[in-house]
Amino acid sequence: MQQWIDLLTEQMRHTTWLEWVAVLMGVAEVLLARKNNVWLYPAGIAGSAITITLLLEVGLYAEAGLSAYYVVMSIYGWYLWLRQTGKPPLKVAWATRNEWMITLLIAFGGWGVIYLLLHHFTSSTVPVWDAWVSSTAWAGTWLLARRRVENWVVLNVSNLFAIPLLFHKQLILFAALTIFLFIVAIFGFVDWMKIARQKAYTA
């Protein structure tokens, strides 16, 4: 345990201002998401754009690709949450059967595709692990863009595997951030369940 504390202390000492900005944007994004606030998307875009460069430097190619995907999905989610003029905003609700099928396709199909790309075209030392973290996060982010309650569950599957992966790569600060995101996601799930139930009762 002391070894990890010493490593965290050492990494924090050498953390660049860009890394701090990325971490702070990640914290802001998940807290805003928990509050069902659309400003989560600008925060997410800023944090993800910075994180791409940082992850490429340590060879986590799928994670870097995931951050690029976050940027695209954040733009898509931002649009869906606001919708076009005259259309009602997207409401928090439970995922439909079709949405679950798409989610599973993204998670498992994405896992296979990302693994093959990492295995054949990169120097990744953890292609299976890295691919799974990324594909499940892809699936959870898609559900978040759709404003579905279950996004928190799927994102936490990704977080659960991401934490040891980040420790393995000695990205202790990002591992600590992911632990924080994991905890917040639990509360986010509870909060969004309440919102969905209230909307169901008043519908």
Rank of each mutant, 00 (worst) to 15 (best):
W81A: 09
M73R: 05
W138E: 06
G140L: 03
F180K: 06
P164F: 03
F174K: 11
L56S: 04
F121S: 00
I114C: 12
S124R: 13
A64T: 07
V113P: 06
I50F: 01
T136N: 08
P88Q: 13
V133Q: 12
P127W: 08
A162E: 01
F121T: 10
W100H: 05
A49V: 06
E57L: 02
I52A: 04
P88R: 08
L166Q: 14
A175S: 13
I102K: 14
L160E: 00
V113D: 08
F174P: 09
W129M: 09
M73F: 08
V149W: 01
V58D: 04
P88K: 10
I114W: 07
F121R: 05
A95N: 09
V126A: 14
L80A: 01
A107G: 01
A162Q: 12
A95L: 08
T96Y: 12
P127S: 11
L90D: 06
G86T: 08
L181K: 10
W138K: 06
L56C: 03
Q170M: 05
P88E: 14
A107F: 03
V133F: 13
F167Q: 05
F108M: 00
I45A: 03
W111H: 15
V157A: 13
W100E: 04
L171E: 12
G109T: 03
I163S: 04
L181Q: 14
H119I: 02
E150W: 02
Q170C: 01
L143F: 06
R148A: 07
S134W: 04
L143N: 02
I172K: 00
V153Y: 05
H120S: 03
L82E: 10
R146M: 13
